[in-house]
Design a protein around this nucleic acid. Structure first.
Lengths: 309, 309
DNA sequence: GTAATAGTGTCTTTCAGACAGTATGAC
DNA sequence: GTCATACTGTCTGAAAGACACTATTAC
């Protein structure tokens, strides 16, 4: 009798659990990489517990335990609460964070490993031109749009597809990564662990981890444009081209060399070390990040037309 | 015996509670306003419960119950977890949202009311020039900076104050509202309910509600620059000047009239209704928001220098 | 020399910022 | 007419975008 009451109590009180999830990004050899566990099928994560001093501290502990990897820069991504995420009436709240580091060798004694993020989102890499997957994707998305019930819905779907994937003269916008994933999900075109799909579009992950990764990609692609966060991913010394390759890796697009240089130079964020690289071709000068300059004077984006006052 | 075990269980399992907090903004008569309860000392909030379909849905219910006010646009702001927020070992997780609406008359039968947000942050309104509070604030902040232990700390503090408050030739950046509040908090210059401070800088709120409001202000001030969210705050028909006044209210700064017009026009987000206002002076044309144009083709901010491919 | 990669000079177009002007109503 | 507010035309200078060219190494 008392036993059942206790069990009911447990159920009533433990229905909501809080989980911390990490999207840890590095750039290595021109590839943006994400730290995964379980053979590349999940992001590092774990419950938020009373021992944790804060959300960030808790996450750092979990990542360290699961991947033997210490973290630098972190920022909060998003908080998800989805009843549908589990089959029972249990509810999960997931608080996700985006972390930036430099890639260390895969940690021993764990199942952690770095994966190119384009493994999960092959359509997001346009550095070598429009990837082949896009043929299948557009065909299937068009079919999905045409299958809507009303004419209004059909045109709405076509419109969304057009904008998200840059079709019919709309230009590609790398920041729409999350929207693209969302669209493919709605159209039933992405398989996740336990959920099949007719078209194989990228490698699956557990639960909504791939969605969270897409959220991280979108955030990072937006952020590199107005805050000097790329440097968190660079070694202490690097050439101009190294830096460009890193940004290109994240954005999934090629950049204009001279204009990229000019952009970086006028921000005065880097300084020469005096050293040079050596190898095939002309040696390149090495630079280092001037971390001391990063006061919070954001390179505030498109501005309002202020009056002189 | 069983009783104690049960109590322990309750305590063990209920240590973490989840709270939803809303920053609801409207603009009225040139003032940005925030929806408050308890005589302007708190933001609408309530626990996240199993009946709630989602975080957003739960928040909408709480706001409706506490303020009799239905909401339109909403987005997630931030998730806070702070052990220090309560005196016990209990832990609160607060998930905050930013909502935009038009102001309705204060709801009857509740203690809800709209407050100008500059009531809580008087230093954030620069439309009529630099407000008087700034004299006291800079004096006190300088004193705080000088009181640091080491010369390094002193210079760091001075630097932060300079940038956040736009002193010594640094220009004012309205998006740093949260940083400014944070700085004043660190310096012990903002009083909150139960926490006194030597300098009265704006009206206090319970817990960290004022901090959450500052987060909302910062988010909104950044967002109006690259997404057409102002229109959520406008009546169905409005003049160009109405629109400008609304943006000015949010930004806390005056804008350049002609350039503002040009900016809005080239975005093609509004259309004439054919109607005009009447009153003193030349009648102004009325416009309406073309909601159908708001596909997610963000006016993406400062761009990367893309290659032609 | 050639191949390969690093780095510079400068032209053009676009657009933000600022100027000063004209238009249309109430009285 | 005056006063008050709404609206327009256009100059200027600073960047964004694009062009082609020169420099320094390994072999």
């Amino acid at each position: 009798m008392e036993k059942t009451a206790q069990q009911q109590l447990i159920r009533a009180l433990s229905e909501t659990t809080i989980e911390l999830i990490a999207v840890i990004v590095a750039v290595n050899a021109g590839d943006p990489r994400v730290l995964t566990i379980s053979n590349g099928s999940a992001l590092p994560s774990g419950p938020f517990e009373m021992v944790h001093r804060s959300l960030q501290a808790g996450l750092r502990l979990w990542v360290k335990e699961q991947t033997h990897h210490a973290l630098g820069y972190m920022e909060q991504l998003y908080t998800f609460a989805d009843r549908e995420r589990t089959a029972t009436t249990q509810r999960h709240i997931s608080i996700s964070y985006l972390g930036l580091t430099r890639e260390a060798r895969d940690a021993d004694g764990t199942d952690a490993c770095w994966q190119s993020w384009y493994r999960f989102f092959p359509w997001e890499d346009r550095r070598a031109g429009v990837p082949d997957v896009m043929h299948d994707i557009t065909a299937q998305l068009n079919a999905w749009a045409d299958a809507a019930a009303t004419e209004y819905d059909r045109s709405q779907r076509r419109r969304r597809v057009m904008i998200a994937f840059g079709l019919n003269g709309v230009s590609w916008n790398e920041e729409l990564a999350l929207q693209r994933y969302q669209l493919l999900w709605e159209a039933g075109l992405v398989a996740e662990t336990g959920i099949p799909a007719p078209l194989i579009t990228g490698v699956a992950m557990t639960h909504d981890h791939r969605r969270i990764l897409a959220t991280g990609i979108t955030r990072l692609r937006a952020k590199i444009k107005y805050r000097p966060v790329v440097f968190e991913l660079m070694p202490p010394e690097f050439t101009f081209l190294d830096l460009q390759r890193a940004v290109e890796a994240l954005a999934g697009r090629l950049l204009h060399k001279q204009n990229f240089r000019r952009m970086i130079e006028q921000q005065e964020l880097i300084e020469e070390t005096g050293q040079e690289t050596r190898g095939a071709g002309r040696p390149a000068r090495l630079f280092r990040f001037r971390r001391e300059v990063v006061d919070e004077r954001a390179v505030t984006g498109s501005k309002l037309p202020l009056a002189r006052n």
